Simulated assay, not measured.
Amino acid sequence: MQTTLVKKQPSSLKLNFLKEIGSNKRARYSLFFLLLVILIGVFAPLLAPHDPEKPYYEALLHGPSKEHLLGTDSIGRDLLSRLLYGIRATLTAASIAVAITFTIGTFIGLISAYIGGIIDNILMRIMDVLLALPTIVLALAIVAILGPSLANAMIAVGFASIPGFARITRGAALTIKSSGFVEASRSIGSSHSWILLRQFLPNIGGVLLVYTTLFIGVAILDTAALSFIGLGAQPPTPEWGTMLAEGKNYIYQAWWLATFPGLAITSVVFSVNFLGDALRDMFDPKSMGR
């Protein structure tokens, strides 16, 4: 009976999740905007009016016009086309960083909470030492070792954020470690992996989903920051952080170079945060009866 109930739980959570998303205006609009941005990035080659890396030397630092809707940069590249292609680089980097953080951070947190004892103490003390360093500083150190590139930047951001995610996972897992259904599974001889994957994860999935969603915005900002200081994506790759860095040198004579990439980063991060806040409200036990 216990096994049957647990097997039905993920699909029930999925239906409840979709229902809550549909009834929450902030979550619905934020999710729609993010999906739209992703689709634009996927179809960037069809939507971009120009080659993002092709310079138009007759149109250096031209403002928004009919030919170049968002203007051109210092070597005449179309800013709109670079923004559209930049969606791919920016969101891909953030997604991979989140995947690294989620996979390793969840594993460490679950193992630490489930085993406990000296293993828990060792793992959490290591996480505490790493948490003492700001994420961006730790990411800078990792990139300094690996070398500047977008791939290394996403790896650095992903690994630098593991301690926080591991702590969140451990805290959530400890709340259900002594639950009756976990003890029942142990008493009937269920394997450790089955208990972790089929009982721990489904029951802390809400917390992990909220934190993962919020971390996407952090990952976008951190990878853009590394690109901004020259340690992430390298020219001529169209990436929002790199474009922002290029635009800062012409902020007074060509305002559009920094304004539009900045607005792109801000709008996506705001949408992700709005979605994360809405999900937090949805999974907050205090708001369930509202």
Rank of each mutant, 00 (worst) to 15 (best):
G22E: 02
A160D: 10
T213P: 04
L196P: 03
A144H: 01
L15R: 15
R88M: 06
L91S: 09
Y250G: 07
L209R: 15
N203T: 11
L138W: 09
S227R: 03
L36I: 08
S65H: 09
G241T: 14
E183H: 05
P261W: 08
R125D: 14
N203C: 10
A233K: 00
V143P: 01
M124G: 08
Y85S: 02
V98M: 12
S287F: 01
S227A: 13
G262V: 04
A233F: 00
L13T: 12
A89M: 11
G171H: 04
E239A: 03
T3S: 11
N273Y: 11
A141Y: 10
P64N: 03
D128K: 05
I104V: 12
L140Y: 06
R28M: 12
F17G: 06
I168M: 14
A141V: 10
G86S: 01
V157C: 12
Q253G: 07
G232T: 02
Y250S: 12
R88V: 05
I136N: 07
I162D: 12
L34R: 04
Q199F: 02
F102G: 00
Y250W: 15
K7Q: 12
L110G: 06
K25W: 05
V272F: 15
S95E: 01
S193E: 05
G63Q: 07
W255D: 07
V6M: 03
L80I: 13
A27F: 10
H68G: 08
D51Y: 08
G22C: 08
T259F: 11
P64R: 05
D281K: 11
L150F: 00
M127R: 15
S95Y: 05
D128M: 03
K248M: 13
I40C: 10
L196F: 10
F165C: 05
E20I: 02
